[in-house]
Structure formats: structure tokens, C-alpha cells
Amino acid sequence: MQDMFFETLTVQRMAMMSRLVAVSDCDQEDKSLALAWLAEMNAELLKSLLEAEKKSPQEGGSDSGLLQ
């Protein structure tokens, strides 16, 4: 099973940033920047998870690493 430590940290950071932006008195520019960062972090996390799924034969992935 893949170690999901970094993915868990990313989700925690995204949740914290979302809470901070939602409850703080940010101007529109700060909120736009925070949303852009969240979108960037989400895209990287999704890419990482999809790659891990693809490489995991235990989870039905297509790459067992044996043919390389």
C-alpha cells in the first residue's frame, strides 16, 4: 500500500486554507489568490493519486513494474 503521508498533508493544507479564507476578512484579490492556490494544489494531488492508482497492481492498476 502506498504511503499517503504527503497526500494527507496536502488535503489538510487545503482544508485549513479554505477555512481561513472563509472566516477571515480577506479582500477579493486575496480570495482569488487563495482559490488559485487551492486549484493548483488540488490538480497536483489528483495527478499524484491517479498515478499511484495506475501503478498499483494490488488495486487493479495497469503497471505492475515487472515488464520494465
Rank of each mutant, 00 (worst) to 15 (best):
M1E: 09
Q2N: 08
Q2M: 08
Q2L: 09
D3Q: 13
D3N: 15
D3L: 12
D3R: 08
M4K: 15
M4W: 15
M4R: 14
M4C: 12
M4P: 08
F5V: 07
F5N: 11
F5D: 12
F6D: 10
E7V: 01
E7T: 03
T8C: 05
T8N: 08
L9N: 05
L9D: 04
V11E: 03
V11Y: 00
V11M: 02
V11A: 05
Q12A: 09
Q12I: 03
Q12H: 04
R13H: 07
R13V: 02
R13L: 07
M14C: 01
A15K: 12
M16D: 14
M16I: 08
M16V: 10
M16A: 15
M17G: 03
S18H: 14
S18E: 12
R19V: 11
L20G: 04
V21A: 12
V21Y: 01
V23L: 10
S24F: 09
S24R: 13
D25Q: 13
D25E: 15
C26A: 07
D27F: 06
Q28F: 13
Q28V: 10
D30G: 11
D30N: 04
K31W: 11
K31I: 12
K31H: 14
K31S: 13
K31P: 02
S32M: 10
S32V: 02
S32T: 13
S32D: 13
S32F: 05
L33P: 01
A34M: 13
A34E: 08
A34Q: 07
A34K: 03
A34S: 12
L35V: 07
L35F: 11
L35T: 10
L35C: 08
L35D: 14
A36W: 05
A36E: 10
W37Q: 11
W37G: 02
W37C: 10
W37L: 10
L38V: 03
L38S: 02
L38P: 00
L38N: 05
A39D: 15
M41P: 00
N42V: 00
A43W: 03
A43F: 07
A43S: 14
E44W: 04
E44G: 04
L45W: 01
L45A: 02
L46T: 07
K47W: 15
K47H: 07
S48F: 01
S48Y: 00
S48G: 06
L49Y: 00
E51Y: 07
E51R: 12
E51T: 14
E51K: 09
A52K: 15
A52L: 10
E53S: 06
E53D: 12
E53Q: 14
K55W: 00
K55M: 04
K55N: 11
S56F: 01
S56M: 01
P57M: 06
Q58R: 06
E59C: 10
E59V: 03
E59R: 10
E59D: 14
G60I: 01
G60Y: 05
G61M: 01
S62Q: 12
S62H: 06
D63C: 04
D63E: 13
D63G: 00
S64V: 03
G65F: 01
G65N: 04
L66N: 05
L66R: 09
L67E: 14
L67I: 03
